[in-house]
């Protein structure tokens, strides 16, 4: 599993497209749901999942517990990890760095930022490769 993380519009998607062969995309920006990954992942391709902050924002409206949301995604990463081993095809998670601005005024934004940070840490832990993207360039962190 590979995690590609970076700020908004930093060129994350381009790096993935340039470095990885045929991909199956699951994107919250295309209104996909995270649960779509199983049906979307075509045989012999790399699964790319992006738009986590949108799915997390949706979870915030249904769950009061940050821990529950974090656990939900942690379990998902574990499932993805095992499925990756089984299929012998790669998974790439693209995540948005959003923890480097000022503390947001709205509580829901603070929650989103916190949970997104934790989820990125959990994803990084399970990933054997982590890349940080900055202005169209990538640096391997792990």
């Amino acid at each position: 599993m590979q995690l590609v993380i970076g700020g908004a519009f930093s060129g994350k998607r381009k790096i993935v497209k340039d470095t990885i062969g045929t991909c199956s995309w699951v994107s919250a920006y295309q209104e996909d749901r995270i649960a779509d990954w199983e049906t979307r992942w075509l045989h012999g391709t790399t699964l790319v999942i992006e738009g986590w902050e949108k799915w997390i924002a949706d979870e915030l409206t249904t769950s009061e517990s940050n821990d529950d949301i974090r656990s939900l995604y942690k379990a998902l990463f574990q499932t993805l990890f095992e499925e990756e081993q089984r299929r012998k095809n790669k998974i790439v998670l693209i995540m948005l760095e959003m923890g480097k601005g000022i503390v947001p005024l709205q509580k829901k934004d603070r929650r989103l930022r916190d949970i997104a940070g934790w989820i990125a840490q959990d994803a990084a832990q399970l990933s054997d490769q982590v890349d940080y993207v900055w202005n169209g360039l990538a640096r391997r962190l792990k």
Partner: peptide, 8 residues
């Protein structure tokens, strides 16, 4: 200046 790594 990098201004793209805060909350969207």
């Amino acid at each position: 200046n990098d201004v793209n790594a805060g909350i969207p």
